[in-house]
Design a protein around this nucleic acid. Structure first.
Lengths: 230, 230
DNA sequence: ACAAAAGTGTTCACACTACACCCATGG
DNA sequence: CCATGGGTGTAGTGTGAACACTTTTGT
């Protein structure tokens, strides 16, 4: 039985919109779709959906992420709630934005066709519906903060990566060039990575060694009272 | 006329909860109230209220802030949206938390009685209803980030402040002691403050000079490509 | 043999840390 | 005159920035 206190207030539609980011060809990419409904049908939009009664905000976001990527255990952070009165021109909708980092290496491209979706270079975004461009800006700002204070950058990769690729990714996220030696020095000094024996040979003739992030080394690192900083 | 797309989805109560912070007697304080309704009537709670159809999230937060503090133009940041299914035991409610920094120097204490409110030391918080303790933790984390990257700390004061008070405040926010000379050196190096001629004589016999934050100096500072860091 | 990307150390400037004594005033 | 908090400088250490050449290998 619901107390009377609750029954006399307005109720709202709640949407969840996801900024789905991936890394490929030295560029950050954002997954967009053509909005399937009026208003603004066929305009570019983030992946989103309405929240259901039986699910939490996080569950709603996970549902959307799974629907469009078929990946589970995706790294995800809430960006914030957007509640301007006329932000959605169809009806009053409060939207909660999340950003997510997916592994683009093994991305199922048939999904893209199914949902009229497309990966777009982060620097060549079209105009998006409603306040979605603002959400993307806010998500990127939060991403930069997270990347520089926690080891989240590794979530762009399926386990292993090369140092040149990691640096390209870092440069794409922060939109600034970086000195190769300083970058590598920083990483080796932290001592969080394992150097693998295999080399990646697609993007160069010489080949670059693969590395992987070592969770146990990271735990030890924290136990020493150090805090991650990139 | 609302498109059919919107009409078949669930609608939710949306609450706005405010983490109202102030500084006094060398301590951070949080404004709490006794929850006036069931369930959990009379338990400690953040200041909050339900969102109205005609207002944005920010406006709803501003409304609550004004109701309980009678202050306008309060510095405020959104902390995030909280959407666990059973977080509010009365009904399904999605809550958006904001933190706000108010000037406690000229706080109207009659308001406190009127709303059964009380300023509580940040280190002696009672158990709060629902997930409000979590909101406070998240707010403090965000506050620390904001304080260290933008000149928001000055919003705790009505225009002027002494350096000892500023340092006490910084130490309260970050919960760590700080070297007096290093702290002052950092501030004077940034050159964002104006030293006033007046002294504050309540907390010491000698008296400490007042300073004020100079917005124009800050604009110049940014124009030089420097970025604020405390 | 050459083009293209991987890999590797040192120096310098600056920011952060640690640290101790004198000053002004009210009681 | 003394207790209390306000105010001041320097030396050392560590972190971030700048910088150029050798190695590997596919074509």
């Amino acid at each position: 039985m619901i107390p009377a206190y609750y029954t006399h207030n307005s109720r709202f539609l709640i949407a969840v919109d996801c900024i789905i980011l991936g890394f490929r060809h030295k560029e950050l990419h954002l997954l967009l779709t053509r909005r399937p409904v009026e208003p603004l049908k066929n305009e570019w939009s983030l992946m989103g959906g309405f929240m259901d009664e039986k699910e939490s905000l996080n569950e709603a976001a996970e549902k959307i992420l799974y629907r469009y990527t078929r990946q589970r255990n995706i790294y995800m952070e809430q960006v914030g709630a957007y509640g301007e009165v006329n932000r959605d021109t169809g009806d009053r909708v409060i939207s909660v934005a999340f950003f997510a980092l997916v592994k683009m290496e093994n991305f199922d491209t048939s999904l893209a066709r199914q949902f009229d979706a497309r990966w777009t270079h982060i620097n060549e975004l079209p105009r998006l519906v409603f306040d979605h461009n603002q959400m993307v800006q806010d998500a990127l700002k939060l991403l930069r903060y997270k990347v520089s204070t926690e080891p989240v950058i590794f979530n762009f990769f399926e386990k292993r990566f090369t140092l040149p690729a990691l640096q390209d990714l870092y440069e794409a996220i922060f939109q600034m060039p970086l000195d190769k030696r300083n970058f590598r020095k920083k990483l080796t000094t932290m001592n969080l990575l394992d150097k693998l024996e295999m080399k990646e040979k697609e993007s160069s003739k010489r080949g670059a060694f693969y590395y992987s992030f070592n969770q146990k080394k990271f735990a030890r690192y924290l136990a020493q009272g150090k805090r991650f900083s990139l």
